[in-house]
Nucleic acid binder design. Structure first.
Length: 267
DNA sequence: GCTGCATGATGAA
DNA sequence: TCATCCTGCAGCA
């Protein structure tokens, strides 16, 4: 589930439901018992998202850092929450609802220095845009020799891209994932950044990744595109390209599989 | 019940 | 590049 869009969406929905509330926290699994006890009964001020990281601000200045990793997942109920599973690292409850967090890579209290260190190693976030974001991204890309498909997963270059968006962005930009990042033109770098802003924005709004041109495929909105037609190349090895009909290829890159169309993304 | 797999990231070799 | 950590689910017996 979790690329940058999931994180920003979680921040927005949880903020809306819980910001300003006094929360009861515990760790049914027991692996975050001390932290939960430290926060129990305090008021949540707000939640900041950056890249794939979440920072929860509590009264009295505490910060809770959450990173979902590959398996992490939030579940939220407005009424009648189920019993927590064995994997529920953190549970919190307020009048407005109940939240369970399972499987995170990080769920920890953070001192200010540690947060600065985390933020310092992250590149620009297309969902937290600043004026210099596109330029920082383009410069970073131009400086790298690694394949562009590998570079896009580097959170120091662009924060929030994961394996689905990397494959889909490269398809839409017509760039072969194995091409050297440094050989990507400035215009293509700008296009990749714009695609990231647009695609992650759609994902943040509707809660799932849809990268196909919904109008061209006969749907009114991205959210109307049915499962199975939402992506151009991700996990479509051997199937026909939705644009040209050629077979989708795949290759391992920086330990993860990337898919592409050899015709639409020539080397 | 078991196996394998997944939209992530790190540290050692 | 590999091993490791983090869970839940589908697919199978």
């Amino acid at each position: 589930m979790p690329e940058g869009h999931t994180i920003h969406r979680a921040a927005r929905l949880q903020r809306r439901r819980f910001a300003g509330s006094r929360l009861s926290l515990d760790s049914p699994q027991g692996r975050f018992s001390e932290g939960a006890a430290a926060l129990d009964g305090r008021t949540l001020i707000t939640i900041d998202a950056y890249g794939k990281h979440l920072f929860y601000r509590w009264e009295d200045g505490e910060t809770l850092h959450v990173h979902l990793g590959l398996f992490g997942r939030f579940r939220m109920w407005t009424s009648d929450p189920p019993e927590p599973t064995d994997g529920t690292r953190l549970r919190w409850r307020a009048d407005a609802g109940t939240l369970h967090l399972s499987g995170p890579t990080a769920c920890e209290l953070l001192d200010p220095d540690a947060e600065v260190a985390i933020r310092a190693r992250l590149g620009p976030d297309p969902l937290a845009p600043t004026p210099d974001g596109p330029v920082r991204f383009a410069r970073g890309l131009a400086r790298r020799r690694a394949p562009v498909g590998q570079a896009l997963l580097d959170q120091a270059l662009i924060a929030g891209i994961g394996n689905v968006y990397r494959a889909e962005m490269l398809f839409l930009a017509g760039i072969n994932p194995l091409r050297s990042a440094g050989d990507v033109t400035t215009a293509q770098a700008d296009q990749l950044w714009s695609l990231a802003v647009t695609l992650l924005g759609i994902g943040e709004r509707i809660g799932r990744i849809v990268t196909v041109d919904h109008a061209r495929r006969g749907y009114r909105r991205p959210r109307d595109v049915p499962r199975g037609e939402r992506l151009y190349v991700y996990r479509r090895h051997g199937e026909p390209c939705l644009v040209c009909g050629a077979q989708i290829e795949r290759v391992a890159l920086s330990g993860r599989t990337v898919w592409w169309c050899a015709t639409c993304q020539p080397s």
